[in-house]
Computed example of a mutant assay.
Amino acid sequence: MTQKKICFIGAGNMTRSITNGLVKSGYAPELIHATNPSEAKLTALHQELGIQVSHDNLKATEEADVVVLAVKPQLMEQVCQQLSQLDLSQKLIVTIAAGVTAKRYHDFFKQPIKLIRTMPNTPTQIGYGMTGLYAEPSVSDADKALCEQIMKSGGEVVWVSKEDELNQVIALAGSSPAYFFLMMEAMIDSAKQDGVDESVARALVQQAALGAAQMVKHNTNLSARQLRENVTSKGGTTAQAVAAFEQADLRGIVRGAMHDCIARAEEMAKQF
């Protein structure tokens, strides 16, 4: 594994997820540096993972080979303009912010940069993440491989050929853990209302969800539809539950939610 110096500008949940994945996969903690205004966040990262931490964006960036921009979209312009004081021509810039386009980064930095946009999700923290990546045509294969290596430490990756496809990645992977959590939450709440102990309900639901995901992963020759039909005996309990979902137009609800997610990403691109 090629190990280069990486700095994370921002120490929020996604930085925690990615750095945790890196360290757990064997990346040297001393080569990872995170910056943030919050002393509490930095202290927690240092104590948990042993990585370098500081408040100094410029110094961390100057010493890094890879700079990961992990701040909120509304703060991105300010951060990039600060970093533009440095010569960034030999550094790989990786972003994980939704809604900020490659063109905007070029506007912010006002100098040639090597840029890869990524969309990871929070299961990266435990090695089950999914990250979508988009590289501009000028980015070398070596830099793409380096970015892929970093993101693969937390799970799987997919490359998209067009930047706007990252909005689909957001809807399908970046935001979708929350969809599944909501479904699990609703199932657990229903069981609790029927008198089932919460710990028992959670154990049943989480294992069923894990098993279902593994069934999809390990049966690549079968569609999700076929797997569903395989456990839906005509006239049985599963069929009754599925019928209730269909009657409530679950497919329409999901499609509407995903479209709203994409629309919000597109709206953010205009804002930032």
Rank of each mutant, 00 (worst) to 15 (best):
H33V: 04
I32Y: 01
Q226R: 14
L83R: 00
L204M: 15
P137K: 14
E229R: 11
G211H: 11
A28C: 05
V205N: 08
F272I: 02
T19L: 10
K162R: 14
R251H: 12
A263D: 15
A248S: 11
K103F: 05
A239M: 12
T15Y: 12
N20Q: 15
Q90Y: 00
N36A: 11
D141Q: 14
G256T: 13
H55R: 12
Q125S: 09
D189P: 05
V67K: 00
S138Y: 07
T95H: 06
M268I: 13
V196K: 06
H46M: 06
T2S: 09
L227T: 07
C7L: 06
K114T: 08
E163H: 11
F180I: 13
R264V: 02
I32W: 02
A70H: 09
I96A: 01
H259I: 08
T61K: 01
Y134W: 13
G21Q: 09
S233K: 12
Q47P: 00
P123D: 13
Q85W: 01
E165G: 00
T118S: 12
D189W: 10
E39G: 04
I96H: 03
A244N: 10
S190K: 07
C261I: 01
A265N: 03
S223H: 09
C261L: 08
M14K: 11
Q193I: 02
T237W: 05
Y134G: 04
A212R: 11
D194F: 13
L210K: 13
A40K: 12
S140Y: 03
T122M: 13
G256C: 03
E246Y: 13
K192W: 08
L22Y: 00
T35K: 02
K114R: 15
G211S: 08
C7P: 03
V254G: 07
P177A: 11
Q247L: 08
M258G: 05
Q52G: 03
K72S: 07
Q247N: 12
M184L: 12
N20R: 11
V216C: 12
T35C: 08
N219M: 09
R251S: 13
V169D: 06
A34V: 10
C261A: 14
R202A: 09
A64H: 00
E185Q: 15
Q247K: 14
N167V: 04
A201Q: 13
Q193E: 14
L182M: 14
G21E: 10
A265K: 02
G155R: 10
S140N: 10
D141E: 15
A178D: 12
N221W: 05
L42E: 09
Q82C: 05
C80V: 05
A97R: 03
H218I: 02
L31A: 03
S84A: 15
E163A: 10
K5Y: 07
N20A: 10
L227A: 09
H46K: 15
